[in-house]
Write a protein that binds this DNA or RNA. Structure first.
Length: 576
RNA sequence: CGGGGAGUAGCGCAGUCUGGGAGCGCACCUGCCUUGGGAGCAGGGGGUCGCAAGUUCGAAUCUUGUCUCCCCGACCA
């Protein structure tokens, strides 16, 4: 590609509304431009990277026996009403009507559409297993789009849906996809973790998220430093603590704690370690049900765990007014002793080993000391309710300690079971002629998000450092002073054609610009390898080869520079 | 949806408090010059000051309304 005839509108200054580094660099490198909140134009350079990733995904999906197809982005409301998600999905689903007043939505995902197709076409166990995928534009009317391609409203996604005769067969399909995902992200040269995850609104029995590790990641994840256990903190299990049954020594005593409403204040006021305090939180399912949750003072409530423990669909912290009504006590001094009858009390597992604690007295400006679970108050039930923290013991192995990371969720695989096939009536006849419900799985990869994540993980002060498999071009040829040194331009052009003949994707910087401008642009847009052709080197028959990632710079004979580029690129693209 | 901030040239911003000429840097165009890390000089083009209404002799500036965008939170594959 001749740079002078291409379109790469780079920016010297950082646009003020870009927060994270990948967003800033994609704008500066001329890869994307914003059209509206969370909606972007993919400029030529950005599209090239996106296509690179799409093709890796496509190859690995095909290898894993998934079949490509394409579904519409506009979907009829009827299907969503049938699955029940027309009500459940909320404002995130962009809805509209056509001229005949029929209702439609922009597809945020395609379980309904694919299941509809399958129920019409699949009648026999002989037709399965099946796995359909597509790479397509989705729309989700996010409350707060941000971070450029990382969380857009319109975005490109690869989604796949598997159909199997039973749960065991579905497990195999799931495993195939999981392995394909590992290959995909390994091929891109990204540092990532596959973690156990909550299934959220999609539902289903099990799921893993694929997380690209990056400081700016929106998710907190943990992994064991000894075994393979890794999970999103939303889901990460706590090792059941050994129960100390020694019992409390101190008597229960009510003490005035004027105005001490937070755990830190109370602990400091009473000169007690925070670990000896119990905090009391009240949550609501939003439909009038409440629960009192007890945690060790320094622990953090995991709302998803509590929601799942209660079997609720929704959860939120209760408001101050609701708490007063439900418990009869003001926020800041809540406790389980003498609480209103009928309010369920659930305690975190960590409480089992605690003795002589500080706990709210359910009365303004009062706390109890010497409180002991079991002796002084009853915990209705015990469950894992808290967030895992770094250094916690691994729930799966004996020796491991948990490490914490930030991650960007780029892929998610779900075992759906029969959730959608049942609602939509997707069934088949087995060998005995008996009707059964199809078992499903669904598998997503954020295409644009992965490209953004790769930038988040690979950049320096000069710009993007693309891994070769995702780079818009493998290498560039920079002709120095082409306007004046016509010999240089001709020689550089020849090198450019030779590289292209080797099957390499080359950006030929033939612009009549000063060298500094070209170097800056080349670094900014993240071309992995750069050959500089100048009159001085040419006098000795040499050109300069620079590696964007390592910064290594070599003065080499022309043919050698060409063969080295070829070799480096081939090595980076090889995968097995 | 709650809290905070911002809309002035393609980008980054000043001007607004205290009403009266629409400005600066980068980018762009022309010429000269320069050519290994975003050069220099000279000349030039480009803006309904987000939109609407109001106050005023006069509004980017004051008032009211409205739209959009950004940040934090809640929410969210």
């Amino acid at each position: 590609m001749f740079y002078s005839r291409y379109f790469i509108p780079t920016l010297k200054e950082t646009p003020s509304d870009a927060e994270v580094i990948s967003h800033q660099l994609m704008l500066r490198a001329g890869m994307i431009r914003k059209l509206s909140a969370g909606i972007y134009n993919y400029l030529p350079l950005g599209l090239r990277s996106i296509r690179k990733f799409e093709n890796i995904v496509r190859e690995e999906m095909n290898k894993a026996d998934a079949i490509e197809m394409l579904m519409p982005s506009v979907q009829p409301a009827e299907l969503w009403q049938e699955s029940g998600r027309w009500q459940f999905y909320g404002k995130e689903l962009l809805r509209f009507k056509d001229r005949k007043d029929n209702e439609f939505c922009m597809g945020p995902t395609h379980e309904e559409v694919i299941t509809d197709m399958v129920r019409r076409e699949i009648k026999s166990y002989r037709q399965m297993p099946l796995n359909f995928y597509q790479i397509q534009t989705k729309f989700r009317d996010e409350i707060r789009p941000r971070f450029g391609l990382m969380r857009g409203r319109e975005f490109i996604m690869k989604d796949a849906y598997s159909f199997d005769v039973d749960s065991a067969a579905a497990d195999l399909s799931y495993e195939k996809m999981y392995n394909a995902y590992v290959r995909i992200f390994e091929r891109c040269g990204l540092k990532f973790r596959a973690v156990e995850a909550d299934t959220g609104t999609i539902g289903g029995s099990a799921s893993h998220e694929f997380m690209v590790l990056a400081e700016s990641g929106e998710d907190a994840i943990v992994s064991c430093n000894a075994c393979h256990y890794a999970a999103n903190v939303e889901k990460a299990e706590v090792r059941v603590p050994a129960v100390a049954t020694s019992g409390g020594k101190l008597p229960l005593e009510k003490i005035a704690t004027p105005d001490k409403k937070t755990i830190m204040d109370v602990a400091a006021f009473l000169d007690m370690p925070v670990e000896s305090t119990i905090k009391t939180l009240v949550c609501s399912n939003g439909e009038g049900a409440f629960v009192m949750a007890l945690l060790r003072g320094d622990h953090e409530l995991n709302e998803i765990k509590l929601k799942n423990a209660m079997g609720w669909d929704e959860i939120r912290m209760a408001t101050d007014e609701e708490i007063l009504a439900a418990t009869g006590a003001p926020v800041g001094f809540l406790g389980p002793i003498g609480v209103k009858v009928g309010l369920p009390v659930i305690g975190d597992l960590a409480l089992n080993g605690m003795v002589d604690c500080v706990i709210g007295a359910n009365q303004i400006d009062m706390h109890y000391t010497g409180a002991n679970p079991g002796r002084d108050f009853v915990i209705g039930r015990s469950a894992d309710l808290r967030n895992v923290v770094a250094g916690d013991a691994c729930p799966r192995c004996e020796t491991g300690k948990m490490e914490m990371w930030r991650g960007i969720e780029v892929g998610h695989v779900f075992k759906l079971g029969t959730k959608y096939s049942e609602k939509l009536g997707a069934t088949y006849l087995d060998a005995d002629g008996k009707e059964n419900t199809i078992f499903m799985g669904c598998y997503g990869i954020g295409i644009g998000r992965t490209v953004a994540a790769s930038i988040e993980q690979n950049h320096d002060e000069n710009g993007i450092i693309f891994p070769i498999p995702l780079a818009p071009f493998h290498c560039s040829v920079v002709a120095l002073n082409p306007g004046k040194e016509t010999g240089v331009l001709a020689e550089a052009e020849e090198i450019y054609f030779k590289l292209e003949q080797l099957g390499l994707e080359v950006l030929f910087d033939d612009r009549d610009e000063r060298p500094g401008v070209k170097f800056k642009d080349n670094d900014l847009i993240g071309i992995p390898l750069r050959i500089v052709v100048g009159s001085k080197g040419l006098a000795e028959g040499k050109v300069e080869l620079k590696n964007r990632k390592t910064g290594e710079m070599l003065l080499l004979p022309i043919e050698e520079a060409i063969s080295q580029v070829k070799q480096i690129v081939d090595m980076a693209l090889a995968y097995e």
